[in-house]
Design a protein around this nucleic acid. Structure first.
Lengths: 276, 276
DNA sequence: CAGCAAAAGTTGGCTGGCCAACTTGATCTG
DNA sequence: CAGATCAAGTTGGCCAGCCAACTTTTGCTG
């Protein structure tokens, strides 16, 4: 892959002096070197440059090609391994596992971002926004003191004007205050919050099946008792403080969730459902 | 990342490989140093040693405590970060995110192992096992040549004799041959296959909702058209060769799937459901 | 005392090196 | 020719060090 990484293109030339310049150029490609290498290899793999079950070049060869150390290459390959694109065993070259397109974190967290990445037109209608004291479960999830207040939104989300999902989100007050000031027709709360300095960096998801209640049925246009795919999500900011506790209910056939895990890296788990 | 468990993770059958003089003394939890450190920190975090949203010691301090280099500590912390146990930002100490118990890889892949880890009694009844040419979709998933044959099993899985899941699995012939020789009352195919040298190391999961067909309804004792939580799973061995293509259908309320992702590591994604 | 500047503390990132463990293919041997 | 042995190639793991970027604390200044 010809693309020898802009920063290191002049590797010997003046690698360290021109730090600022090159760093800026690198930024739009992914900032860190290992991310650029990972992005380039991902591109090569998904376009089939190494074949269906082909073998990748050795770490050393890649290090030389990109003009980086082997450690950096290993960091890049760890990313691809975690995404399930390649295997990784001692003693033999890495093998291409699949060419699965893995969405970015923001595509996963933001309905709007996700929809646009598929070429669909996302929409959202705010049904209600109320402010009230948090109940026990909400205090637990959002790590709030007794008596703390939360903002609760109910939104109907659409793809090309077709209802697909009901979203019930609970915000702690410091976030909810911002949400309450947004115009009711704003499509992406996530993007608006980011511009106000609220960052989403970590999320825990739980996925199961529920039946539509009266409210769901009315909004989604399905029967009461109809099955819905539910995703419950707790999101935290970079400091680890919970910023969102949301429950999305999708009409069947509109979405599926996909995850990769391996002996090396696994974050998925299966729970018994005594809760809720 | 979760692994650290004795079962498959280390597959340390040939533990004779010396190398681990004093290191092994610490714990046989995991061969590698960073795994031992990770296991120890996980233990400390889940028992609340650092508090709910407490701060971890600095990398340097941990390195000194465990007598390893900072790089090794960073490797261990990367494991915990991927599991969603701690945050990780430049400039400040890591913060405890939660004390989520993350299942091991084998618990996730094996219904039997998972059930036992919850104290339930898993059961399974083989309804049918047939051998036939693979169709196009199966060839694609299992990466088979045209004309290749597959073994297809249909099993009803139970917890304490209560039906909870219907499992339809397609095996390539080299695995299916082994499955076909198993006694029909064997509970865990996965464990049996491992003893025959078939290892499961990577898996892709897709989770969505379907309605019960006549066969599902009969086996699970639900109405036809009732909602089921479906997990489709393709599993590969260490070399990247597909060894299993399975479709599990759970009764609502019996399980939920849970996953963590973050800006740093994300393997979960959301798909449109045009397929299938 | 408020606000700003400097300093200290901490993690992210990268390098270079070394050895062990493992896989694979070639070579030798009976 | 089958099987064992050996050598080369490759990844896993660990170390020591360095600097940059960022956060928090401290201390100074107006």
């Amino acid at each position: 892959m010809g693309r020898a990484l802009s920063t290191t293109g002049a590797q010997d030339a003046g690698a360290q002096d021109a730090g600022t310049e090159n760093a800026a150029a690198a930024q739009d490609a992914g900032g860190a070197l290992y991310r650029q290498v990972a992005a380039d290899l991902r591109e090569a793999i998904t376009t089939g440059a190494y074949g269906e079950a082909g073998r990748l070049p050795a770490e050393g060869a890649l290090a030389e090609r990109y003009g980086v150390s082997r450690g950096t290459v290993r960091q890049a390959l760890a990313v691809l391994r975690a995404d399930g694109l390649v295997t990784s065993r001692r003693g033999t070259r890495r093998v291409v596992l699949g060419n699965a397109r893995v969405q970015s974190f923001s595509e996963l967290l933001s309905f709007t971002h996700w929809a646009r990445s598929m070429g669909e037109e996302p929409g959202g209608r705010l049904e209600s926004l109320i402010r009230r004291p948090a109940d026990a479960a909400e205090r637990e999830q959002l790590r709030l003191e007794p008596g703390a207040e939360v903002y609760v939104t109910l939104r109907l989300r659409t793809l090309s004007d077709v209802p697909v999902m009901v979203e019930r989100t609970v915000y702690p007050s410091h976030v909810g205050q911002l949400v309450a000031q947004l115009p009711p027709d704003v499509v992406s709360h996530t993007e608006q919050l980011r511009e106000h300095g609220i960052l989403f960096t970590d999320a825990d998801h739980t996925i199961d099946v529920v039946t539509a209640n009266a409210e769901d049925a009315k909004l989604l246009g399905c029967r009461r008792g109809a099955p819905l795919l539910r995703e419950r999500r707790r999101t935290t900011d970079p400091t680890g403080r919970p910023v969102e506790w949301s429950q999305d209910r999708y009409l069947p056939g509109t979405v599926a969730f996909s995850v990769h895990n391996s002996l090396a890296t696994s974050a998925l788990s299966r729970h018994a459902r005594a809760d809720d």
